[in-house]
Design a protein around this nucleic acid. Structure first.
Length: 489
RNA sequence: GGCGCGUUCGUCUAGCGGCCUAGGACGCCGCCCUCUCAAGGCGGAGAUCACGGGUUCAAAUCCCGUACGCGCCA
């Protein structure tokens, strides 16, 4: 593959919903490719669907990309660039340019007005299906006389503009991932480039803009491969030099169907809200349909830039594996320095009322290898701060019997006399307590853990006691010792 | 229906004619470590490389069919 001197890639979402995983992966690959080549990554909003486009979707897409850490060099809200040669980055603000090119194609006879009604087109389709022909526009408005056109116009008929496809020959799509893909022109139909509302269709606007924005590489989802020959014909008719194309394999859901907005947890923002760490998601996404020859899993950002290549892209679709994502998230959280971890988990800590609690950082460090999600941080820590414990069934059982309860009472008395409540002296005292009574350590450790935390799982026992502090430990032990039978929740 | 794309362990993948008795990762199972849970270490099960033909001394790798899946067109 040649390395062009000026690489410009783009991500061009339609603001008709949240940014989903597949879109984020496409954006990511465009960004990585641009970075790898020292190029520019453009964000363009394709809001020509007048009915379904919303401002909320635009915001959601921008938020998603920002959160994921996929910054765009040009696009909405890059204010200093808004006056640049490629602005604006919303297609509805570029309407004039599409209309101008449409007029040009019309004048040159490469496009023509089509007056067919929805009913006529439906009938055409049904007939084709009956005759087992491919359902396509039959070209009936291709060569209308001027007179006929005037007649339609006079009757108030609205026209769309169709592009005149060559009747013969083939169009080759040179694809960086799939090689040369051939399409027969005769099978391509005269597609609509301007709707009756004089708003361009996707295939048209996309070509005009990619050319105007000097996009060098169009990296997009596989579902656009079939559109590409039509677009290539448009490039030729307009006298534009086409960009290089790379069609990415799709992302499938766990059920093997295309991962879509309908699939549930496919929105990037949902992952944010569930507590995923953005760099982990981004790393995981990079691995969906791309790999290095070493099958490396974890990448620093710089490494991703350096190692990313189109050659490493997979032709076959990839299934999204939530289990692997979760593992990767844990990997990232484990490596995070404590202050950064807390800062990242802040929204979740605030929600749990733990943000700003004294000793939070110290306590958080005790559980650090257990967090898989940022939302796990408050979940695993709240017993340190809560006044009343959420007892698990297992923990209740451990302190329910009279024997352990009596021991806990004695332990409370002994620990209250300890000169220092640091981990070391605590360990010595408690082990001594066991030895003096000829008890196995587990006979004391387990009820003790349960009594002070309400759980059977947690950090190292003595570290945990030290972090809780004498007051809480003694109070919880006395309470456990005094409560007969199963503890009240 | 036509056209296009794809098919290596459950999943992500390495592989681009001999290094493959197919490597790594997630998940799963077992052992070790150990005050619990994790983390970590060690090990294991798991892929007749979709199927059938070729080409070749040699094919997961090249060619042709078939099947299945997916996409686009409507």
């Amino acid at each position: 593959m040649t390395t062009p001197s000026k690489v410009r890639t783009r991500f061009a979402p339609s603001p008709t919903g949240f940014l989903h995983i597949g879109g984020a992966r496409t954006a990511l690959f465009n960004w990585l490719f641009a970075r790898h080549h020292g190029g520019v990554f453009v964000l363009r909003i394709e809001d020509t669907d007048e009915v379904r486009s919303t401002h909320e979707s635009v915001d959601a897409i921008l938020d998603s990309l920002r959160w994921l850490g996929i910054p765009w060099d040009e696009g909405p809200e890059t204010l200093e660039k808004d006056r640049g040669p490629y602005a604006p980055y919303f297609q509805m603000k570029r309407i004039d340019s599409y209309r101008a090119f449409a007029r040009k194609l019309l004048q040159e006879g490469r496009a023509y007005p089509c007056y067919c009604t929805k009913e006529e087109l439906d009938a055409m389709r049904r007939l084709a299906q009956l005759e087992k022909r491919p359902p396509r526009y039959d070209g009936r408005c291709r060569d209308l006389t001027d007179e006929k056109r005037r007649e339609f116009e006079a009757a108030g008929k609205k026209a769309v503009l169709r592009f005149r496809m060559p009747d013969e020959g083939t169009t080759a799509v040179p694809d960086l991932i799939r090689g040369n893909v051939q399409f027969e022109n005769a099978l391509l139909q005269d597609f609509v480039i301007m709707k009756a509302s004089e708003v361009p269709t996707y295939n048209f606007a996309c070509v005009i803009d990619d050319h105007a924005m000097e996009i060098s590489h169009v990296i997009r989802g596989d579902e656009h491969l079939s559109n590409t020959p039509s677009q290539l014909q448009l490039y030729a008719a307009l006298g534009f030099e086409p960009p290089a194309f790379a069609h990415l394999s799709m992302i499938l859901g766990p059920d093997g169907a295309k991962l879509s907005k309908r699939h549930g947890a496919t929105s990037v923002l949902e992952y944010r809200d569930q507590g995923y760490y953005p760099k982990a998601l981004r790393n995981y996404l990079a691995l969906l349909g791309w790999a290095t020859s070493e099958s490396q899993e974890l990448f620093e950002e710089e490494e991703l830039f350096r190692k990313f290549s189109i050659e490493g892209c997979q032709k076959s679709p990839a299934s999204f594996d939530p289990a692997k994502l979760l593992w990767m998230d844990g990997e990232y959280l484990r490596k995070l320095p404590a202050p950064e971890l807390l800062a990242a988990a802040r929204p979740f800590l605030e929600k749990a009322g733990l943000w700003g609690k004294p000793g939070l950082e110290q306590v958080a460090a005790l559980e650090r290898e257990k967090y898989k999600l940022l939302s796990d941080v408050p979940k695993l820590l709240d017993f340190f701060f809560k006044d009343s414990l959420d007892w698990t069934d297992k923990a209740q059982k451990l302190v329910a019997a009279d024997g352990p309860r009596a021991l806990l009472g004695e332990l409370a008395a002994e620990l209250s006399r300890l000169p220092s409540f640091a981990a070391k002296p605590l360990e010595e005292a408690i082990r001594g307590f066991c030895a003096a009574r000829s008890l196995k350590t587990s006979q004391v450790f387990h009820p003790l853990r349960a009594a002070v935390s309400g759980r059977t799982e947690g950090p190292s026992l003595f570290e945990m006691l030290a972090a809780l502090g004498r007051e809480k430990v003694i109070a919880r032990l006395r309470q456990a010792a005094a409560t007969p039978g199963p503890l009240a929740r």
